[in-house]
Design a protein around this nucleic acid. Structure first.
Length: 487
RNA sequence: GGUACCUUGCCCGAGUGGUUAGGGACCGGUCUGCAAAACCGGGGACAGCGGUUCGAAUCUGCUAGGUACCUCCA
């Protein structure tokens, strides 16, 4: 399988360090607000990767962190911890805020059918490890203590290692790009970043350390937790493109400084979701939360969109391309998904014949080929649509399919649609199965009555049943020898 | 200002130096008591201007427009 590695800016053959084991680390959310569409992108992208690697037979340990400390608000290191700020505003315990948004994040992810990671470490739960990590960097001589805070010495590091190799930045540029230094006198250079930050008196979240009562720097948690759970060297590190610099660059620097070598073999970055051509993000305030999509409560949304529509919409574009959101584009995705879903259901009911008159061979191979090419989900989907045409033709009775071909098609569709793309094709939950059966039986009964009326050319009764069901929100479709319905 | 990237048909969105991506919308047809669905067919495209080439949307140069990162951000 080929993976695009940001480090080399090229596609590379994926070779695990310790096959069949694969270590995958992805930057998770900062839990101080509801997840928006932008958060769904990496979650779904790396869910796809996780699912595909698993399908390939790898034993994947997937670590996705929860950031609940250390992110500073405004003006670099002068600000207030984001979570603390939110807590102050809402009069809540910081950990209460963390728990609240973590729960909501999990709920959204579950709706999107994003599999939970193997380990979901919290930054706040790894303060000790982070302190130990800082000590290593200090011992190696790549950090300095100033006024109770510890800063990473980028200049020193850049003499011994390549600082900027991920983002393509070089230290000379950083010198010239020095911004307003407001209150950053503690640091030797503006581009030095905090490993440990002394807490201001009003700061609620803080922990004891050898240097001060304070909190860890933002970039540190990923270095610490990544190496803790996946080892000093692991296979893949993922995240949004906007994290490339400074976050991931700093992470590389910290790990190299502490351990003397790189930790990550493949860096993968998903592109942004845009809205009217502009990045959807917190800073622009132009984001739409996932819940708003699900309820349709947002001025830019024409209607509610199901989680699977959102998932499909994201999978219809390659993960390294920007994807421009619009209600219109979502509606198109919704219709496409509907078509796919209907075809999937028909495929389950198809009757095999002696031989196939349609060519359905090679679907699995083509889909695998697309996935092997840096997770090209749009191509997989296009193959499925091609296949859908053949399936529908058989369904219409215009062509036939052999039992063997049918089985292969059913298996392949199940594999790619449900297992790999992660598109849920049925909403039935087992808890209400008996209720559902009764209700389905009732609708079937009505439609069978309609069928009988049709047979007797009693169009009045027939149309009456259909119209009333339609008014209730049912979708009735006549087929060759019966009917189909959906809500 | 620095760095990187993008510009594909009405819309979304893939892709390769030479042959139809796919989806949505639209138009025509088949099927059907009607409707819906499905199937078949259709039109239209590679920002602009040069260069390399037998041939470029695909490589290269310039121009125009846009975006991202450089600060919290998925």
């Amino acid at each position: 399988m080929q993976i695009y590695n940001t480090l080399t800016r090229s596609k590379q053959e994926f070779i695990p360090l310790n096959a069949p084991h694969v270590g995958l680390y992805v930057c998770g959310p900062t839990v101080y607000g509801d997840a928006h569409l932008g958060h769904a992108r990496p979650a779904i992208t790396f869910d796809l990767l996780y699912r595909y690697l698993t399908y390939l037979g790898y034993k994947v340990r997937y670590v996705r962190n929860i950031t609940d400390v250390g992110h500073l608000e405004h003006d670099a290191d002068e600000g207030e911890d984001k979570i603390a700020k939110k807590a102050r505003l809402e009069q809540l315990e910081p950990m209460e805020v963390v728990q609240y948004y973590t729960n909501r994040y999990h709920h959204d992810m579950e709706l999107l059918n994003v599999l939970p990671p193997s380990i979901e470490p919290h930054a706040s739960g790894h303060i000790i490890e982070q302190i130990e990590f800082i000590k290593k960097i200090l011992d190696a001589g790549y950090a300095y203590v100033s006024e109770g805070s510890v800063y990473f010495d980028v200049e020193k590091y850049a003499k011994d290692f390549h600082y900027g190799k991920l983002s393509g930045r070089n230290i000379e540029e950083l010198y010239s790009e020095t911004r307003e230094l407001d209150g950053q006198q503690e640091k030797r250079h503006s581009f030095d970043f905090a490993l440990w930050k002394k807490a201001a008196p009003e700061h609620i979240m803080h922990w004891p350390s050898p240097w001060s009562e304070g909190f860890p720097g933002w970039h540190l948690e990923c270095s610490t937790m990544g190496t803790k759970y996946l080892g000093e060297q692991f296979d893949i590190h993922g995240g949004g493109m906007d994290l490339m610099f400074p976050h991931h660059e700093a992470e590389i620097a910290q790990s190299c400084a502490a351990l003397g070598h790189d930790t990550v073999k493949y860096w993968m970055h998903n592109n942004m979701i845009t809205i009217a051509g502009k990045k959807m993000g917190k800073s622009y305030g132009n984001f739409i939360t996932l819940e708003q999509f699900f309820t349709g409560e947002h001025p830019l949304l024409s209607k509610p969109f199901s989680p699977m529509t959102i998932r499909f919409f994201i999978l219809m574009a390659h993960y390294r391309s920007t994807v421009d959101f619009s209600s219109e584009a979502l509606e198109a995705a919704e219709k496409g998904l509907e078509r796919l879903t209907e075809t999937y259901q028909r495929l389950q009911k198809l009757k095999p014949s002696q031989e196939s008159t349609v060519d359905v061979k090679g679907l699995r191979e083509r889909c695998i080929e697309a996935m092997d090419d840096d997770l090209n989900s749009p191509i997989v989907i296009s193959h499925l649509f091609d296949s859908a045409r053949a399936i529908n033709t058989v369904f219409d009775g215009k062509e036939t399919i052999s039992e063997q071909d049918l089985k292969e098609l059913q298996d392949t569709w199940h594999l790619f649609v449900e297992d790999i793309l992660g598109l849920k094709m049925t909403q039935a939950s087992s808890a209400v199965d008996s209720n559902l059966d009764a209700y389905r039986g009732a609708v079937d009964m009505l439609l069978n009555m309609r069928l009988e009326a049709k047979r007797q050319k009693d169009w009045t009764t027939s149309d009456n049943i259909r119209n009333q069901l339609t008014a209730l929100g049912f979708n009735i479709k006549d087929t060759k020898d019966g009917f189909e319905w959906s809500l």
